[in-house]
Design a protein around this nucleic acid. Structure first.
Length: 416
RNA sequence: GUGUCCAUAGUUCAGUCGGUUAGAACGCCAGGAUGUGGCCCUGGAGGUCGUGGGUUCAAAUCCCACUGGUCACCCCA
């Protein structure tokens, strides 16, 4: 094999696209029912946008971005996530001037250069939504409820929702100092990775998977106990609304997301059906990002979710998307009928009926086999006899029944 | 980026202590008294055994490197 797709990228084959299309349609249906409108942004942006929004110290920016210089020597990056582009577009196009609240969604490919593994690709697909312009807890909960509605709609029930509040620009730095001081006391006992994080990203240490780190930090102060009044109130409101909506959740005071722009609410949905990459979706509030990217101070909430991970669960459950098969296969019994068959197939298609006929000059038996393989609902065999009499047998391939029909009526018969 | 395991028809796999024509199932193609699919029967096509080196009289089989896949770490969708 001479050429292969790039490591960590995958072809989505004709046998798989029906599932993709079905899932995408379900997602769009939910978004539209929550009145979110689609935004489509370019899949590459200036590198600076991601540095500024995601944060220079995050893993995404530090070691995962596909960054290159184009022929004009501009630094370009393939988007590693969707929020930065969406907010850039929001600011650039002054969407905030047209409406007090913009509810937008996106769906498409993202790129991160990591070592591939189960549930992790270099080109993967995310869907997500942003509610730009609302500070209320009601909006946080709408975003969470909408995410969950998508999984519910697809019959995925085996997930768990974890929430946290990561504070705001006032209480988070204060908490970070307290935490840092505690961590420094035991720094030499922590894992190498955690030691590196104490200075720049101390909250990450609490999120470490290292067993030893976990026990060492078991009694460390949590951000949820150090929120200022506003953040604490907001968090309480989120929790009580979730409860009121009947959405189960657990509070995880150690939850930190991989992007620096989150404030107040952060959440993650995980599934035990997945491998060690078990996050189905994540999101939260980002009240500072719009201003950071040159817009007005605009409180916002959003989430992003992985398509592939969602589909891994559906496949595991044996989920079958609706079939995309022709309604009728028109077969030619002999050479004289071939032209009629072609024309009739075209006529059926023009009438909006998915139809197929033989293009390989094959025997009638082969044509019938093809009709079966394609899972056509009906077959119609036409030869010189039928052309002469103007009648033919229409066969239902599911229940094997046949009925004689007038060739001139074929379109209306199939249409009913 | 580090590590694990793996690499044989289109697919999933078998292939003994290295031994000469590399197999199966499914799929694909063609037939089964001359114009009807699915099941069944018969026949057929299809593999430089991932690539390159090495050991050996002899390598799909043993060794090394590379490439790719896989899973895990890290991190996350």
């Amino acid at each position: 094999m001479n050429y292969r797709s790039i490591k960590g990228t995958k072809d989505i084959l004709p046998s798989e696209t029906p599932l993709w299309q079905f899932v995408e349609q379900t997602i769009r249906d939910v978004f539209h029912q929550f009145n979110y409108k689609e935004i489509r942004t370019p899949i590459f942006e200036s590198t600076a946008l991601f540095l500024r929004s995601i944060g220079e110290l995050t893993d995404i920016v530090g070691k995962e971005m596909y960054t290159f210089e184009d022929r004009s020597h501009d630094s370009i990056t393939l988007r590693p996530e969707g929020t930065a582009s969406a907010i850039r577009a929001y600011v650039q196009n002054n969407l905030g001037e047209a409406l007090p609240l913009s509810k937008i969604y996106y769906i498409g490919p993202m790129f991160r250069q990591e070592r591939p593994q189960a549930g992790r690709l270099r080109q993967f697909h995310q869907f997500g939504a942003e509610a730009v312009g609302s500070p209320t807890a009601e909006t946080d909960v709408e975003i969470i409820a909408m995410t969950i509605e998508i999984y519910k709609r697809l019959g995925i029930t085996n997930y768990s929702l974890q929430i946290n509040s990561v504070g705001d620009e006032e209480c988070r730095p204060r908490y970070k100092e307290i935490l840092k001081a505690e961590l420094l006391k035991i720094a030499d006992k922590l894992s190498f990775e955690s030691q590196k994080r104490i200075e720049q990203n101390p909250m990450r240490v609490l999120d470490s998977k290292d067993e030893n780190d976990k026990t060492l930090t078991a009694s460390m102060p949590l951000i949820t106990d150090h929120l200022n009044e506003e953040c604490a109130k907001h968090f309480e409101r989120v929790k009580s609304l979730l409860t009121a909506y009947g959405i189960p959740f657990t509070v995880n005071g150690r939850l930190v997301r991989g992007l620096d722009y989150y404030t107040k609410t952060a959440f993650e949905i995980t599934s035990s059906e997945l491998g060690s990459q078990d996050a189905l979706a994540g999101g939260g509030r980002y009240d500072l990002l719009v201003k950071e990217l040159g817009g007005k101070q605009t409180p916002s909430v959003g989430f992003a979710a992985g398509m592939e991970r969602l589909m891994m669960i559906l496949e595991k459950k044996g989920f079958q998307p609706p079939k995309q098969s022709p309604k009728i296969f028109v077969a030619a019994a002999d050479e004289t009928a071939r032209e009629w068959v072609l024309q009739t197939t075209m006529k059926l298609r023009s009438a909006g009926i998915a139809s197929e006929c033989d293009l390989l000059s094959r025997s009638l038996k082969s044509q019938m086999k093809e009709a079966d393989r394609q899972q056509a609902q009906f077959s119609l065999v036409v030869g010189s006899m039928e052309l002469e009499s103007g009648k033919a047998l229409l066969k239902n391939l599911t229940d094997h029944s046949q009925q004689e029909i007038l060739l001139s009526d074929i379109v209306t018969i199939i249409n009913t």
